[in-house]
């Protein structure tokens, strides 16, 4: 049933596929990010309680959602690498971790800049903020562990193990605003209920979320290609390509 997937485990195929997709993904991501952010910054009405400070939502929410989405992708790649020993999956884990780390940092920094005017403080040790900070440390842990062993294979395996174990943090982040008393507001967009945000503000937000998602894929393509080259540099196909 999944046999059609097999060629995509071959590094050479993935290298060329990523090379073809990358420019389109990067272009689409930049266009959507500009569209969503300019729309959100200049062409939506201010919030009735928060005034214009709420416009930070157009970066904060996409970065926060995709910091978790990127982690799920990394954990799936790590699981695939550990169980089926697919090399491309293993390299994807290390290629994707810095993207997730940057997204998490953006979510935290924009959250601080939003928290100062609205809550009166840059930071509180409450459940949502702390669990998101732990997510950043998980990403940094994966990056650090992969480089901490003299044998690259061992490092990659240990990093994958951490990535899989760290999945436990995702539901904690998601439900932290319901399980604990917190300064952080609940979700404005959910899958099952009508969004508690006006459509005029929702559309640019959804576009920005899509932009962050596509940007993640574009960056993954770019970084995975480098990883494939580094790991396959002694193979004939790489030599034939880079030699001329």
């Amino acid at each position: 049933m999944f046999k059609w997937l097999h060629p995509y485990a071959k590094p050479e195929t993935v290298y060329h596929l990523c090379g073809r997709l990358m420019p389109w993904l990067m272009g689409a991501a930049l266009l959507l990010l500009l569209l969503g952010n300019i729309w959100g910054l200049a062409f939506t009405p201010p919030d009735y309680q928060q005034g214009d400070s709420y416009r930070i939502i157009h970066l904060h929410v996409p970065a926060a959602i995709m910091s978790m989405g990127t982690y799920s992708a990394m954990a799936i790649a790590a699981f695939t690498a550990l169980v089926w020993q697919v090399k491309v999956a293993q390299w994807s884990v290390l290629a994707i971790a810095p993207i997730g780390a940057v997204y998490t940092a953006i979510a935290l920094i924009t959250g601080m800049a939003w928290g100062k005017p609205m809550w009166g403080t840059w930071w509180v040790w409450d459940a949502r903020l702390t669990s998101e900070l732990i997510l950043l440390f998980l990403y940094l842990g994966v990056i650090a562990l992969s480089g901490a062993f003299s044998d690259r294979q061992t490092g990659a395996k240990v990093a994958s193990l951490l990535a899989v174990v760290g999945v436990i943090n995702l539901p904690i982040i998601h439900f932290s605003v319901e399980w604990w008393n917190t300064l952080h507001q609940g979700a404005s967009i959910t899958k099952f209920a009508k969004p508690s945000i006006d459509p005029s503000m929702l559309w640019p937000l959804l576009i920005s979320i899509l932009a962050f998602k596509i940007l993640m894929l574009a960056l993954l393509c770019m970084r995975l290609r480098t990883a494939i080259l580094v790991n396959e540099q002694h193979r004939p196909w790489v030599k034939a390509m880079a030699g001329d």
Binding site: D52, S53, H60, A63, A113, P117
Partner: peptide
């Protein structure tokens, strides 16, 4: 930004710088 300029532009500025740095560095590494 209705008096919230510092916070809004701090958010957007730092985010764009981080994203641009990641894109640039990934390309540079390759």
């Amino acid at each position: 930004m209705g008096g919230y300029g510092l916070f809004v532009w701090l958010s957007f500025g730092s985010s764009y710088i981080m994203l641009a740095a990641l894109v640039w560095y990934s390309q540079y590494q390759h």
